[in-house]
Write a protein that binds this DNA or RNA. Structure first.
Lengths: 218, 218
DNA sequence: AGATTGAGTGTACGTTCGTACACTCAAAAC
DNA sequence: GTTTTGAGTGTACGAACGTACACTCAATCT
């Protein structure tokens, strides 16, 4: 004589397929992990903390990830989706030539604020995460450098620049932009942030001046 | 009827004052901590691990530090002694003008190898350490930027450069050099490292070209 | 309608954690 | 020579850790 209740799971009326439900929990785990390691690191994050935050029992974690490290790799992928969205924004906007810097930096700053947790995760785990996570992040950043290098070809024309030098310039720009993101993330005061962003603009202009006067191959 | 043995402590014949002995243990703790957090982070380092590594009982840790965080702050100070030694080397060497870059980078690379653990510690904990540790590291790096800025005055003459722009240029150079140190630390292969160092040289030259053609204040 | 599946449960384990407290015993102070 | 001091010991605790194992029970499959 089972009472056939219209089952109430997680305080939501269910017309949810099994897969949807699983995906929802999975998302909750990813979000909880991102939130919990915000002021420490993946390497100091325990499976039990995550489970408690999500509201599941510790062993249920394994239904979704093999380990915290595997979860971390997933977060890396997810974070770099944010970054790619940013790059698309940058490429889509097609400002006048001497506005490229201001425009790009503006987009970066906006994305850092909107995806603060993702950027913070990448910056932190790049230096301190589990080995595989660090590797994944650095591979992705190298990929960005290569893409930026090909973008630069379009801007400069390939005449005076060797591919090597383009790659190196690209690395310099990426380093500066990562540095800007880091600086923003560690600066809570909006006033100080404005100064930092302005400084980054000037830095990129300096690099641009250097680039325009550069002659490859010597 | 006490046997008056010539006491053997830590397998060393003792003619050690009490203070010396304490200092020795303290050093052992600092070294052990630096070694143990090499492939994780301070935030994942336990007092018990450190104690076991040193060969003392966990509670004895408190005779030297209040907490892992306090130990971390000490390691920051210690690490920056290494960095200051490097800066002294850079300033002491007084190469021909267009060798400044090569010379400075050479010194940096050498110090990164010789003080690998310290550099790695700073880079990792700057991003992922306990709040106070992160703050201490960033304060010290900002200090470096200011010092470099005053050094740059000597090189450029203050005529065409505003103080602000000098500070900004200094920040760019420091960012690039931190980036170089990070890249070296994550690159085990000496061949790949050579390419990275060469890239950094070119980057600095690009920045230098930009600087030479820069005109402050627009 | 009945059998299968699998996300989530509950209990239970051996470890490790930080820390409290009472101790030892040689160096340092008197 | 006696007292004091303090680095290091030893035990003991409750809490958190990862994980093994047997479970439930609704969605899905047949």
């Amino acid at each position: 004589m089972t009472v056939h209740t219209c089952a109430l799971i997680n305080s939501t009326l269910v017309t949810e397929t099994r897969g949807e439900r699983k995906e929802r929990t999975r998302r909750a785990i990813l979000d909880a992990a991102l939130r919990l390691c915000e002021d420490s690191s993946l390497v100091a994050l325990s499976l039990r903390q995550v489970a408690k935050e999500v509201g599941i029992v510790p062993t249920a974690f394994y239904r979704h990830f093999d380990s915290i490290e595997a979860l971390g790799l997933e977060l890396v992928d997810e974070s770099f989706v944010s970054l790619r969205a940013m790059l698309l924004d940058v490429r889509r906007s097609d400002p006048a030539f001497d506005d490229i810097i201001d425009s790009s930096i503006g987009i970066l700053v906006e994305h850092v604020h909107q995806q603060r947790a993702h950027f913070q995760f990448i910056v932190r785990e790049r230096a301190a995460g589990p080995l595989r996570v660090r590797e994944a992040i650095n591979t992705a950043i190298e990929q960005f450098e290569k893409e930026l290098a090909t973008d630069l070809v379009r801007l400069t024309g390939t005449t005076t620049w060797s591919p090597d030098d383009l790659q190196i310039l690209s690395g310099l720009i990426v380093t500066a932009m990562v540095g800007l993101a880091e600086a923003i993330l560690r600066t809570p005061d909006p006033g100080a942030e404005k100064a930092i962003v302005e400084g980054a603009r000037v830095q990129l202009r300096m690099v641009l001046v250097g680039a325009l006067n550069w002659r490859s191959k010597r």
